[in-house]
Nucleic acid binder design. Sequence first.
DNA 1: TAGATTGTTAATCGATTAACAATC
DNA 2: TAGATTGTTAATCGATTAACAATC
Lengths: 212, 212
Amino acid sequence: MERKEISKSVLKRLPGYLSYLKSLPEGSATYISATALANALGMGEVQVRKDLAMVCDGGRPKIGYLRERLIEDISQFLGYDNTTDAILIGAGKLGQALLGYGGFEAYGLNILAAFDAAPIAEQTQEGKPIYHISQLESFCRANNVLMGIITVPAMHAQQVCQQLIDNGIKAIWNFAPTHLDVPSNILVQNENMATSLAVLSMHLQAQIKEKK
Amino acid sequence: MERKEISKSVLKRLPGYLSYLKSLPEGSATYISATALANALGMGEVQVRKDLAMVCDGGRPKIGYLRERLIEDISQFLGYDNTTDAILIGAGKLGQALLGYGGFEAYGLNILAAFDAAPIAEQTQEGKPIYHISQLESFCRANNVLMGIITVPAMHAQQVCQQLIDNGIKAIWNFAPTHLDVPSNILVQNENMATSLAVLSMHLQAQIKEKK
DNA sequence: TAGATTGTTAATCGATTAACAATC
DNA sequence: TAGATTGTTAATCGATTAACAATC
């Protein structure tokens, strides 16, 4: 398989295919067609086929794709098979919820530790260490961490972001509802609840109006 | 101002403008230009101008937009000024973090209560009630709730989703990492962590490869 | 063979960007 | 007036969809 340049829109759909494929019971058919996948996820079948073409080499006409193989290919493409170490800054409610969420391992994400300006405990219920923010530097150097998760209040996010970059972080998952200024080689992925809410409440407004 | 049809992409950018405008200190200039906004958020200025044109009626050439007015217009457009009531299903870690997060009020979202198949407490630390899932129906009827937040494990999400729809919910904020099948008049907004992670880890893979 | 499916090439659609006229 | 800015019209770009040939 030749690895072509992949667009962000395709990339964002891949986890959906993967999770659906994985959710199929053990005894399911060995092969699955793009048509079946598309129907299950409410998408166009051509789109599914094109997306799959990016990550695996070929289904078989009239039969479809080898399910197990497809799972493997997508997982590998998304890097789920080799884990990424990350640290989390801001051990508040949201931060602790993320620390406690066991599900990230399935995505190859391993949160090593949390940092906070005023740690309330030495570790979480699950045993993940919570350090004072002053330990950030030495920890990053020692563990060669590349991903940082920001769950501090918006007010402090930019400053924390800068600290992360200074310590070698290359990718930032930002839960703070604010824009972060970063150099072009650093990637910020905003988990923006406000954005989702905007879409939802616009839909409700339209529905309410319609009813009148 | 004539309310035109707004695209999702524009809609998703509006909260960003709003939060930046609100973050400006009290004593800031009365007017702000699209150019200034664009620079601050790292966007194209034409795009900002076009977006703003959707929600407010006109800035003044050479001067810009009235900052206060812009905040008001975007807030109103996004429906932040009239609150939406919501209920949350699944009072696990993530559910409780969302229940406890005070910031949603600023977005006009009011989570009335949580429901769970096995409630571990009668209410959260913050005093939000946690009911048994069997109470869902009567609660929805009594309070005319239109938005539901799903924070149950993926396995149960579709079933919970159906219950919500049966009880009159029109918009669903889905935190479960799974696809939900719904009728076309119901909106599902997926808060998909896997999607974000895919983008982030792809970036890291590219960086690591580059280094070699 | 007929039919279901894949994969590719072309057409469409929508969103972003560029160019420019209008305004203060 | 000159220059900064707005808002609009046209061009570009990218992604989705449609049409179709290839395959088993």
